Simulated scan of single mutants.
Amino acid sequence: MTPEELLRHYDDGTEWPGACGTDVHTAYERALSVREMRIARGEKPLGYKVGFTNRTIWPRYGVFAPIWGTVWDSTVTFCEGEGALSLARTAHPRIEPECVFGMARTPPARASLDDLFDSIEWIAPGFEIVQSHQAWKFVAADTVADGGLHARLLVGKRIAVREVAGGAASLEARLAAARVRLKCGNEVKDEGAGASVLDGPMHALMHFLEVLRDYPGATDLQPGDVVTTGTWTDAWPVKAGEAWTGEFDAPLARLSVRFS
């Protein structure tokens, strides 16, 4: 599929007629072309999403390595703990509870975990709403061409990173040990842990930075960017009228969302 076709299906929320028909490298080229088209029409990149960092769900979806895509001022919403999101023009949306980082600065070349810690301004709980224009039947290249499956991102209460930990090792240990209970209404749908995402969200962020910088034409992390690092549970279907809650352990806060 061409970048123009990919963007049209994204805008309309309609299913693709078939697979994207490329390898992963070409899929990233087309995704970056879509990125430029969205910038040209006035949308502003706000950072990135990293997907398929949770190894426990790889066999379920047939994708066995992380992917990444852009998040936008038109798709990211901030709240202090309770938010609302529209599912209009999304394709088979699902919810994912995640840890989100806010960048204070661009990390240095060959950044260590300590360098990353020094580059982070805040952490927050997040709900990424992912989607699939193939009704969740795909190969890895399709997920890349499909914008990394990103549809929406709700970012909850932001906490200054130095209020949480004095360094990278402490932050990584706390986030990896933290758990989340994902609820629809009063029903617990799933539980997961920060350690599920490449052994911890800081490791997921480091992996993403390395692959981003290895990809020709990709834009490096910028001050003010948000990066959401992958789901701690499976991705669960959502629909308008539902209310979902993520009961995160400290240092992350509780997050709730209502869909319209």
Rank of each mutant, 00 (worst) to 15 (best):
Y215I: 13
G13V: 04
G102H: 12
K183A: 14
A111G: 04
P251H: 06
E98Q: 04
G246Y: 09
N186W: 09
K189L: 15
W72Q: 04
P216G: 09
T219N: 10
H207W: 15
S196N: 15
D199I: 02
T75Q: 01
V188N: 06
V188T: 15
T77D: 08
F259Y: 12
S74T: 15
E98T: 03
K44W: 04
T219Q: 14
A193I: 13
S86I: 10
V197A: 10
T245S: 15
F208N: 04
M206Y: 05
R94C: 11
V71T: 11
V139L: 13
I67F: 05
A243Y: 05
E15G: 12
P3A: 05
S112L: 05
T233W: 09
K183H: 14
E121M: 09
A104S: 10
V76E: 03
W16N: 07
V161W: 06
A27R: 00
A65S: 14
S112V: 02
L154K: 07
K189E: 14
H25C: 06
T26G: 00
I39F: 04
K157Q: 13
A165V: 05
S112N: 01
W232Y: 14
M103H: 02
A178V: 08
L182P: 04
A27Q: 01
H9W: 14
L154C: 13
E4V: 12
A91W: 02
L46I: 08
A140N: 05
A176W: 06
I67R: 00
R30H: 10
D214G: 15
E15P: 08
L6Y: 01
D73T: 10
V76F: 07
P66N: 06
G194R: 06
G224S: 03
E29G: 09
T75G: 08
T143M: 08
A151E: 00
A124D: 04
A235N: 06
K49H: 09
R162S: 07
E128G: 09
R41K: 15
A160N: 11
H9D: 12
T245L: 11
P251C: 11
L221Q: 00
K189I: 15
K189P: 03
F208W: 07
L113V: 04
G156N: 10
L87I: 09
